[in-house]
C-alpha cells in the first residue's frame, strides 16, 4: 500500500516544506502566504479524489469548503464547540449535502458537462441562500487562540497545522489510489459503461469518492476562515472552485504529486504576481492559470505528471 518509493518522496517533500517554513518563520507576511499556498494544495489534493481519480469534473470545492468552515465557526461561536472537534461536524455537514445531491445525480446518470454545471450552480445557489440569511456582512472569529481552536498565535504554527492536514490528505490519496476502490475509480474515469458491464457498482463508488472529497474539503474549510479570520457568503466563490479544478487538471488527472506540484507552483507564482503587479494589473494570477490551462488542454492533456514521467524516462536513459 505505502511502498518505499512513496514514503521517500513524501519525506523529501516534507523536508522541503518544513525547511521553507523555518526559513520564512521570521516574516509574518510570507508565512501567511505559505500557509495559504499549502491550504490550497490541501483542497486540490482532496479534489484529486473526485476529479482526478474518478474523472468527475466537480466545480463545487469552494461550496463544501465554505459550508464546512462556516458550520465549524458557528458551532464555536454559538454553542462553544471547540473547532478541533467542530471541523468533523463541518466535514460531516459538507458530506451530507454532497451525498444528498450526489444520490439523485448519479442515480439519474448526470455526468460530464452536466455534472460540472450542476456543481458550479450549487456554488451559486449556496452563495445566494447564505447572502439571503447572513446578509452581506463579514463575521469575525472570537478573539481566542490555542490549538483547541485550531487557531495558533503565530503563522508558523498555523503553517505546521496545515502541513499535518496536507500529509493526511496525501496519505488518504495514496491509500485510495492503491486499493481496490482506486482501481474501480480509475476504471470509471476511463470508461464508465465498460466498468459497469464488468460488474462495478459505478454509482456507489462515485458516491464514495464524492463523500470522501467533500468531507475533507468541508473539514479543512475552517482553516481557510482562520487565515481570513472572518467569513461571509463570499466564501461561496465560483472562481475559487474553478481554480482548484484547474490545478488538478494542470497537474495531470489522478496524479497526486502532479496536482500538489501545480497547486504549489502556480499559487505561489500567482500570489507573487498579485502582490507585485496586482495594483497595475489585477487578476494577472488568474490570467496565468487560464493560459496554462489552455496550453495543457491543447498540447499536453496529461499535465505536469506527463512532464514528470518524460523527465524520469529521460534521466533513466
Amino acid at each position: 500500500m505505502f511502498n518505499r518509493e512513496i514514503l521517500i518522496a513524501l519525506a523529501i517533500f516534507e523536508a522541503l516544506v518544513l525547511g521553507l517554513g523555518f526559513a520564512l518563520s521570521g516574516n509574518n507576511y510570507l508565512m501567511l502566504l505559505a500557509a495559504q499556498v499549502l491550504l490550497f494544495a490541501v483542497f486540490v489534493a482532496a479534489w484529486n479524489i473526485i476529479g482526478g481519480l474518478t474523472g468527475q469534473l466537480d466545480l463545487a470545492s469552494s461550496a463544501y469548503m465554505a459550508l464546512g468552515g462556516i458550520t465549524t465557526s458557528l458551532l464555536w461561536m454559538k454553542l462553544n464547540v471547540p473547532p478541533l472537534l467542530g471541523v468533523f461536524a463541518g466535514g460531516a455537514v459538507a458530506m451530507g449535502l454532497a451525498v444528498l445531491i450526489g444520490l439523485p445525480t448519479f442515480r439519474f446518470g448526470v455526468k460530464e458537462v452536466w455534472y460540472a454545471l450542476m456543481t458550479a450552480s450549487l456554488v451559486v445557489i449556496l452563495n445566494n441562500l447564505f447572502r439571503y440569511t447572513m446578509g452581506p456582512w463579514d463575521f469575525y472569529l472570537p478573539s481566542k487562540w490555542g490549538l483547541i481552536y485550531l487557531r495558533p498565535r503565530t503563522y508558523f504554527e498555523l503553517f505546521l497545522i496545515i502541513d499535518v492536514v496536507l500529509v493526511i490528505v496525501i496519505l488518504v490519496n495514496v491509500y485510495i489510489s492503491n486499493s481496490k476502490i482506486g482501481y474501480y475509480l480509475r476504471s470509471i474515469r476511463e470508461d464508465e459503461l465498460a466498468s459497469e458491464s464488468i460488474g462495478i457498482d459505478t454509482r456507489s463508488y462515485k458516491l464514495r469518492a464524492l463523500a470522501i472529497y467533500s468531507f475533507i474539503t468541508g473539514a479543512a474549510g475552517f482553516l481557510q476562515i482562520v487565515i481570513y479570520s472572518s467569513f461571509s457568503y463570499r466564501l461561496f466563490d465560483t472562481s475559487q472552485a474553478i481554480s482548484i479544478a484547474i490545478m488538478g487538471i494542470i497537474g495531470g488527472l489522478g496524479s497526486i504529486s502532479g496536482s500538489i506540484a501545480s497547486a504549489v507552483i502556480f499559487r505561489t507564482l500567482g500570489e507573487y504576481l498579485r502582490s507585485s503587479l496586482g495594483g497595475v494589473f489585477p487578476g494577472l494570477d488568474l490570467l496565468l492559470y487560464g493560459i496554462m490551462l489552455i496550453i495543457v488542454g491543447v498540447l499536453k492533456p496529461e499535465g505536469l505528471a506527463g512532464l514528470f514521467n518524460q523527465i524520469r524516462r529521460w534521466l533513466g536513459k
Partner: peptide, 27 residues
Amino acid sequence: PVLGKEPLIQIAVTVGLGFVLQNIALG
C-alpha cells in the same frame, strides 16, 4: 485542436479561455 476530444479536455480549454478573457477585462 480539441474537437472530438474527451469532454474534460474541452471544458478545460474553454474554462481557460474564459479565465483569460475575464482577467484581461479586469486588468
